[in-house]
Amino acid sequence: MRGRLNNVMVKTGPLARAATRFHVFLHARGRSSLIDRYFGAPLVTLTVRGRRTGRPRSVLLILTRRGDDILVTPSNAGSATTPAWFLNLMEARTATVDVAGQRWEVAARRVDGDERRECWSILVEAYPDLVVYQRLTNRTIPVVVLERVAAQCGS
């Protein structure tokens, strides 16, 4: 049921984008007690440079870990349209994540084959509605691994 509700929300376009921007705004200022979880799942703020504007763009995503890595998927609630944050991330290949007030740089890589299947299983375990989202769209929903970038000495 949640998947269908979210799919309707995605189709509301500007209203959904405005709500997302507001949630990111609250989350970034530590006022996220109302939105630090999504249907019980913890959240991560992903910030990536826009491929057209060069400006930082932030989105809240469900936090799913595989060891030290963070797994994300641009499901867009089963919409046929791939979300802009994913296109930005694939072009930039780097981003910043914020988890519970801690920030670090990550390198992004899209996974395929056996690794995608493994990561997809982990994502579905964390958020089962992904199965519904995949059924709602004709595109294969990508899976991205975010790996922490080692801090440079002297920076």
Rank of each mutant, 00 (worst) to 15 (best):
M1A: 10
G3R: 00
G3M: 00
G3K: 00
R4I: 02
R4S: 03
L5A: 11
L5W: 03
N6A: 07
N6W: 01
N6S: 08
V8H: 12
M9L: 14
M9E: 07
M9G: 02
V10K: 09
K11H: 14
K11M: 05
T12L: 15
T12N: 10
G13V: 08
P14D: 15
P14C: 09
A19D: 11
A19I: 15
A19Y: 11
T20M: 15
T20V: 13
R21F: 11
V24I: 11
F25C: 10
F25W: 15
L26H: 02
L26N: 06
H27F: 11
R31F: 14
S32T: 07
S32K: 09
S33R: 15
L34I: 13
I35H: 04
I35N: 13
Y38R: 12
Y38A: 14
G40A: 11
G40H: 12
A41R: 12
A41I: 13
A41F: 06
A41D: 10
P42M: 07
P42Y: 03
L43C: 09
L46M: 08
L46P: 01
L46G: 01
T47Y: 01
V48H: 00
V48L: 02
R49V: 10
R51H: 10
R52P: 09
R52E: 15
R52C: 11
T53P: 09
G54S: 11
G54A: 10
R55Y: 10
P56K: 01
P56L: 04
L61T: 06
L61F: 09
L61R: 02
D69P: 11
D69I: 12
I70H: 06
I70G: 05
L71N: 00
P74T: 05
P74A: 03
S75A: 15
A77M: 03
S79V: 07
A80T: 12
A80F: 04
P83Y: 08
A84D: 13
A84Y: 03
A84V: 09
W85G: 00
L87P: 01
L87Y: 01
L89Y: 01
A92H: 03
A92Y: 01
R93T: 06
R93H: 07
R93K: 10
T94M: 07
A95C: 04
D98L: 05
V99C: 06
G101Y: 00
Q102I: 11
Q102T: 14
Q102D: 12
V106Q: 01
V106P: 00
V106F: 02
V106R: 00
A107N: 08
A108K: 03
A108G: 08
R110Y: 01
D112I: 04
G113C: 03
G113E: 06
D114V: 13
E115M: 08
R116V: 03
R116G: 02
R117A: 15
E118Y: 05
I122V: 14
L123C: 10
L123E: 01
V124I: 11
V124S: 07
E125P: 05
E125H: 13
A126P: 06
Y127I: 04
P128V: 05
V131H: 09
V132N: 04
Q134I: 03
Q134F: 01
R135E: 12
R139P: 02
R139Q: 04
I141C: 02
P142E: 04
V143C: 02
V145I: 14
V145M: 06
V145Y: 03
L146N: 07
V149K: 14
V149H: 07
V149D: 09
Q152K: 15
G154F: 12
G154P: 10
S155Q: 14
